[in-house]
Amino acid sequence: MGERMWENSIKLVVVDLDGTLLSRDGILEPQVVGEFRKLRELGIRSIVATGRLTMAAREFAKSIGSDLPIIACNGALIESIDGRILYTTPLKKEVLVDVLNVLKLVPGFHPHFFTPYKMLALRMSEVLRFYMNYVKEEVMVARSLEEIFKERLILKVLLLAETSRLVDRFLPFIKNFLKGKAHVARSFPTYVEIVDPKANKGNALERLLTMLGYDLKSVLAFGDSENDIEIFKKVGFSVAVSNADPSLKKHATYVSRASFGDGVIEGLKLFLGQCS
């Protein structure tokens, strides 16, 4: 693995944030920033592809030197680094009704709804407070369900589970209930993300690279969750960090020994030919 096996192939790095680029506590470590600085010196650019809204991802993208659009909301939104919306794939309103109906059948899940510029919830909860503290963004509590449904674009519903065991138990049921109507993926042990069936990180990346003039096979991608699978299937090279979901590791070119940002560093050093 010490040889410069990808040196002449990789032109672009695509990286997930939570569970991948960021530490367990949601921090971008200086040593990770340093590795991306080396990429810039080599003329290799980077794209952030995340489940977050762009407003919660933009500073991280800028910190690693990215000036390219951000893939947000698991591919339901592509937005320029300066805040211009380039593409959206919103959920249909009837699917939102189906989401609320399935939540009547499974206990312990707390939904909140992503528009391009804000997040809305039906009520405040401890799991929602924990999420807000982690992403350092506010979630607004809507006065009613009607207020949420008046939003023109709802890009994603994030279900926050009270325990990971609830996701283990009910995720297959939720996927089956929404089959053909929505794309459902686990992103954290207690997070379930719901977007339009056509919205995923892989499709969004393909669309964005067509705009930018890059070949998918010249991309090195990093991820940790089920919602990164579609990107891994499309790109030339992929690294699953050690803490990644087993379902993603099956699709990876390489699985790092280290986790979170250290796993990204390991993958980048492998690409740069510096990993013994």
Rank of each mutant, 00 (worst) to 15 (best):
M1P: 00
G2K: 14
K11V: 01
L12T: 02
L12D: 10
L12M: 14
V14N: 10
V14W: 01
V14F: 03
V15I: 10
L17T: 04
L17G: 07
L21M: 15
S23W: 03
E29V: 12
V32N: 08
G34E: 15
G43F: 11
I44V: 15
I47S: 06
I47F: 10
V48M: 13
G51R: 09
R52M: 11
L53C: 08
T54K: 02
M55K: 12
M55S: 13
R58Q: 11
E59Y: 15
F60M: 09
K62D: 04
S63K: 10
G65I: 12
G65W: 04
I70W: 10
I71A: 14
N74A: 07
A76N: 05
L77A: 07
D82W: 08
D82F: 08
T89S: 15
L91C: 07
L91F: 06
K93F: 07
K93I: 03
K93Y: 05
V95I: 13
L96D: 02
L100A: 07
N101V: 14
K104S: 03
K104E: 07
H112W: 12
P116N: 08
Y117V: 10
L120R: 10
A121W: 01
R123Y: 13
S125H: 09
L128M: 04
R129Q: 05
Y131E: 14
Y134Q: 02
V141A: 13
S144W: 00
S144Y: 00
E146N: 11
E151C: 09
R152F: 01
L153T: 00
I154W: 03
K156R: 05
V157D: 14
L158K: 12
L159G: 01
L160M: 13
A161C: 09
E162N: 05
S164A: 15
R165Y: 11
D168G: 08
D168V: 13
R169T: 02
I174W: 01
K175G: 00
H183C: 11
A185K: 06
R186Q: 11
P189K: 07
T190G: 00
Y191Q: 06
V192N: 09
K201R: 08
N203D: 02
A204Y: 02
L205Q: 10
L209T: 04
L212G: 07
Y214V: 12
D215F: 04
D215H: 09
L216G: 03
L216N: 05
S218L: 11
V219T: 05
V219H: 06
L220A: 05
G223A: 14
D224K: 00
D224M: 06
E226S: 10
E226P: 00
I229C: 05
F232T: 02
K234M: 09
S238N: 02
A240G: 00
N243K: 01
A244E: 01
S247T: 14
L248H: 03
K249P: 02
A252P: 00
T253L: 09
Y254E: 03
A258D: 03
D262P: 00
L268T: 02
L270I: 11
L272T: 04
L272Q: 11
S276T: 09
S276A: 13
